[in-house]
Nucleic acid binder design. Structure first.
Length: 797
DNA sequence: TAAACAATGTTTTTT
DNA sequence: ACATTGTTTA
């Protein structure tokens, strides 16, 4: 998909397409086959505003795609008149695919199905020149925003007033999500509070710098589109005329700016903005009526209040859109009744919600498996062992997922998974693009695409080292101000600065490299632009020549980026540099999920939204983690954490595992962890608690071990088993840190070994070859384990 | 300029 | 505990 404005907006099909044939009778319409009455109603409704309250697993994607398919097949609309907003790019791709499967891919061509951010980028790229930006604007991610704010805070010495970078960044983001700009803030602040006045100055400068750099931050993408529509009604009218049916998924997680955007798009077009030759049906006054709106959501799954999502958007939908129809989908087609009972029980503890009870016809299924480990590594080992067991029962790895509250929890899981030779991948934590060398290379591309971007230019000014220090940088910035131009202009005019000949030559060299590359971007392939820059700057070459051993890996990462651009070009033959930069800026954690990869998926509970797996593990179900400590002080925090747990539970189709650890180390020291309050909310008969090895002595009290006594103080205790009855196999809160290398140790079935944690055991089978050979070992007390021979802490005895 | 050392923050979730 | 960032020193 191209973001460049080469696609005509005033499409020929502005009039409804002629109806070819009457729609099949509802009874034998294949698009309605297999739907329950509520789902059917949701597909068929022609209300101007429709709210589908879709409980978890209630087949909402199916309903949405069939609804779209029916609109298109029966020629009620052209594809280009449909705008569908999804939560991730991956969901957008799936929805497009499924509509295509239903009515043919050609018939579905031209729909806009994308995330809020992608849709806004597409609009902004087309309309940027209307308000002082160019089509090549940069999208600043949170790190970029922070970098810019950091410089401003430093310049203004705002930190002396206790204004930190993260506080300022968070506040700016929140204000933008509320559609409040710096001027709006100036009207509401307390002028006697110096910190607020200082913050206003930071906010002002930040906004000015963004505009000057021809850049939008994440929040701007939405907020500035709203601003554009409000300031330029004739521009808004273009889109209001074009989109006749708007669908929004995950409506419970929209923030105010997104809500406002939908309101703007679903405004009726005033007669003066209707062209004389329009073929859309006009009303009595000559205007065009508002587009139809379908929203889908579930307030029980609202988990993004922290980034401004406003649950009122869905709760007050009927008030916002009078005459709206509401359809409730409660039948679940995903999970077993046991899993749903647990989910219903947990979410039932949130008051102030519309009662909703998920049910299914598939039967009770297996009990939920609970496990309490001694440490996070013990817990991780349970997860690994259990996954292995489930896998042997025929569940493929890619149908298994492990969820956690915080990204930091991946560490213990990864350590154990590697040892157990379990194929896994971690979703999110987009580390690749956060690496310094990748950011450098990306900064070159951004500077080439958007010459106004001073932030990108500053980053590469002296990378690789070319003798352009902070003093020269300041001089260049100053010179840009004097010229009334951009920093890039100042670069080309470096001779006028009267600097030393060496520095001047270095600046002009860089200027030439960037200018030459900029000249090619409208036609050149993305990998060619990147390799040309890397060649001329000798970036990779210098890394390879470096004495720092880590630089070799950095060079490889940059080569990997080249491979990424090739991959992009293969998927988007028409894509240009700007398209590549857009795609990189807007990838979501769940987007790089590859269903065909035969691996277990690890992700945060937030990332898990909208996904489903045969077997789900929710780890770290402890107080201060789930609910997270930070949420306690926030209004609505614990309730939102409960919804998060609910989202996690309802991802599971057949098997659900809940696990926790008795101790967990954070920040270096180890603390005793208490079971989450949410565990008590699940009826005990639904959970099959499995104790860690050595916990047998207190098995009678295993339910009590869940902790919290009714009455206060002594909130929780593991009895005496924790300090006293420590079994030999207990895991310390530290896994042997150093990466072991057993060299070419070879084992065969029948060999006896000793393992640091599991004790003695006998090898039953060996699979794989070389460094990847895996031994299956029957331990005397710890059970059966799979070990990666090369790195396992074992010795032959 | 680089290396050595100290200080600091990180762990809430993300487009 | 660990990694990144800033500061001092050679």
């Amino acid at each position: 998909m191209s973001f460049l404005p080469d696609e005509s907006l005033d499409i020929p099909g502005l009039a409804p397409p002629p109806r070819s044939q009457p729609a099949p009778a509802a009874t034998d319409d294949p698009l309605l086959a297999g739907l329950n009455p509520q789902q059917r109603a949701a597909v068929l409704s022609r209300a101007d505003a429709l709210l589908i309250v879709a409980g978890a697993g209630s087949g909402k994607t199916s309903v949405l795609t069939r609804r779209i398919a029916r609109l298109l097949r029966d020629r009620e609309l052209w594809p280009s008149q449909i705008l569908a907003i999804t939560f991730t790019n991956k969901a957008a791709g799936e929805m497009r695919e499924r509509v295509g499967q239903l009515i043919g891919h050609e018939a579905a061509n031209g729909m806009w199905i994308s995330t809020f951010h992608s849709a806004c980028v597409r609009i902004l790229r087309r309309e940027a020149q209307q308000f002082g930006f160019t089509q090549a604007f940069t999208i600043y991610d949170s790190a970029d925003s922070r970098a810019l704010i950091k410089r401003i805070v430093k310049d203004l010495q705002a930190d002396t007033l206790g204004l930190t970078v993260s506080a300022a960044a968070g506040k700016i983001s929140r204000l933008k999500n509320e559609l409040i700009d710096a001027e709006g803030y100036s009207r509401q602040l307390n002028p006697n509070d110096p910190t607020e006045v200082m913050f206003l100055e930071v906010f002002r400068r930040y906004s000015a710098e963004l505009a000057r750099a021809n850049a939008f931050d994440f929040d701007d993408l939405i907020a500035q589109t709203v601003y554009l529509f409000r300031a330029f009604p004739q521009v808004a009218a273009l889109y209001q005329r074009r989109f006749r049916h708007i669908l929004v998924d995950e409506y419970q997680d929209t923030n105010h700016a997104q809500y406002a955007l939908i309101r703007e798009l679903t405004r009726a077009v005033e007669p003066q903005h209707v062209p004389a030759d329009t073929r859309i049906e006009t009303d009595a006054t000559g205007g065009i009526p508002a587009a139809a709106l379908t929203v889908v959501g579930d307030s029980d799954q609202s988990i993004y209040a922290f980034r401004g999502a406003d649950i009122r958007n869905i709760v007050e939908f009927e008030r916002d859109f009078p005459g709206a129809e509401v359809i409730l989908l409660e039948q679940n087609y995903r999970s077993t009744q046991t899993i749903l009972d647990a989910a219903n029980a947990v979410i039932g503890n949130n008051f102030d919600r519309i009662a909703k009870n998920l049910f299914t016809e598939v039967g009770a299924g297996d009990r939920i498996v609970g496990f309490t480990g001694y440490s996070q590594h013990d817990e991780a080992q349970f997860v690994a062992d259990e996954i292995q067991k489930i896998h042997e029962q025929g569940v493929p790895y890619n149908q298994i997922a492990v969820f956690y509250r915080t990204n930091a929890q991946t560490r213990a899981l990864e350590e154990i998974f590697i040892r157990s030779a379990l194929p896994y991948r971690v979703l999110g934590g987009t580390k690749f693009y956060e690496r310094a060398e990748i950011k450098d290379a990306m900064a070159y591309l951004i500077a080439v695409a958007n010459p106004a971007d001073a932030l990108a230019l500053r980053r590469i000014l002296n990378t690789p080292k070319r003798g352009i220090g902070p003093a020269t940088e300041t001089a260049l910035a100053l010179h840009a101000d004097q010229l009334g131009g951009t920093m890039r202009d100042a670069l080309g005019d470096a001779a006028a600065l009267g600097l030393g000949p060496k520095v001047t030559a270095a600046i002009l060299d860089l200027s030439g490299i960037l200018d030459d590359a900029t000249a090619t971007i409208d036609t050149a392939l993305v990998p060619d632009v990147l390799t040309a820059i890397l060649e001329r700057t000798k970036y990779v070459e210098l890394l390879r020549a470096s004495r720092d051993p880590q630089d070799e890996a950095r060079a490889e990462n940059v080569e990997e980026l080249v491979a990424v651009t090739r991959e992009f070009q293969r998927n988007n033959p028409e894509g240009r540099l700007v398209d590549f930069l857009t795609e990189v800026a807007l990838v979501a954690a769940a987007d790089d999920l590859d269903d065909s990869s035969g691996t277990v998926s690890l992700m945060t509970l937030h990332t898990a939204k909208g996904l489903e797996y045969d077997a789900v593990f929710i780890t770290g179900v402890e107080e201060n983690l789930l609910p997270h400590q930070m949420s306690a002080s926030e209004p609505g925090g614990p309730a939102e954490e409960r919804r998060l747990f609910y989202v996690g539970i309802t991802r599971a189709r057949k098997k659900l595992h809940l696990s926790l650890a008795m101790t967990r180390s954070t920040f270096g020291d180890t603390q005793v962890a208490a079971p989450s309050r949410y565990l008590q909310e699940i009826p005990t008969e639904l959970i099959d608690w499995r104790d860690a090895p050595g916990m047998g002595m207190r098995s009678t009290s295993s339910q009590r071990s869940l902790g919290t006594t009714r009455s206060g103080r002594e909130q929780f205790s593991y009895g005496t088993s924790l300090p006293l009855g420590k079994p030999k196999t207990e895991w310390a809160n530290r896994v042997t840190a150093t990466v072991r290398d057993n060299g070419d140790l070879t084992l065969a079935a029948g060999d006896r070994i000793r393992h640091v944690d599991f004790g003695e055991g006998r090898v039953t089978t060996v699979t794989g070859t070389g460094p990847k050979s895996i031994a299956e070992v029957q331990f005397e007390s710890a059970g059966r384990k799979r070990l990666l021979i090369k790195i396992a802490p074992i010795e032959k005895i």
